[in-house]
Design a protein around this nucleic acid. Structure first.
Lengths: 142, 142
DNA sequence: TTTGGAATTAGACGAAGTCCAATCCGGAAC
DNA sequence: GTTCCGGATTGGACTTCGTCTAATTCCAAA
């Protein structure tokens, strides 16, 4: 289903394929994201990477995530102003966000049918579309 | 088209109708948002409010915006982690975000047809759905 | 006029992310 | 194996956005 494999050698290949020089830190960060396939924030990633072997600085984590973003290796999910998530899944899909727990879940693109798109302002091209369904636990059956 | 009028007396009424005690500062902040019908950030609002008469503190601006949010008087638009906008339009609608200029534009709900909605996890209710189309200026015709 | 609770305030604080100058590293050339 | 060079990484200072807190002010009711 994906062309990204999760051992560090294949990850190095994947990075190169995206024009990214595969350093130790970059491979560890990629490994963290792609082996878990979860939505992680920068500080979660830093914590995970550092509880393993290499010590990786905050600056490097942010540099690397921004580099991955630029190169299209990952996506950014902005649901809460003080919690930016990074998503290793770059296939078209949307999100469900639990506003109480902060839990973020994927919706495959096929589950949402968007049939009419707005016309864009002249000279503008769409770069992507984010769809976020905000949910919360239902009050006991009314 | 709206039931909100833009002189300060009617705004006081509107606030009361939403269960908000209409103080000077709250009326000024509401006036700023509703008379302009723009997407403004907290610091833009603070700047506008303070260039008029009353001096309003940062804490009050944030308190008030959060109160308005809670009471459903305004909406929050999260498009960029370091740029939260407040939107005086609470009718269902979506947004176009120019990732280069930061410009945020409304799309009326009727311009987007979403025909299939994902099934939500058990016991969860949707609180709202955000749709953001990210656009950028097209490269010169290729 | 007094009074009590809500609203506001200034400024300290906290969290997330950026910046910068110094250091480190790893591969290419020898 | 050394040397060398430019990119990568680093710690830590810094910025920005927003929250918190304790003290003050405001207003409406008595």
């Amino acid at each position: 289903m994906h062309d990204i494999h999760f051992n560090r050698d294949s990850l190095a290949e994947t990075l190169r394929a995206h024009g990214i020089n595969p350093t130790h830190q970059r491979i560890e960060i990629a490994y963290t994201l792609f082996s878990r396939r979860e939505h992680l924030s920068a500080d979660q990633i830093m914590a995970i990477v550092n509880e393993r072997h290499s010590e990786t600085s905050k600056a490097t984590v942010y540099n690397t995530l921004n580099l991955f973003l630029e190169k299209g290796l990952i996506r950014e999910v902005i649901v809460d102003p003080n919690r930016v998530f990074y998503d290793p899944n770059t296939e078209p899909h949307y999100h469900i966000y639990d506003v109480e727990s902060g839990q973020l879940t994927d919706i495959s693109a096929s589950e949402v049918q968007i049939s009419r798109l707005p016309s864009l302002p002249d000279g503008m091209v769409a770069e992507g579309m984010d769809v976020i369904v905000r949910v919360r636990r239902a009050k006991s059956a009314a």
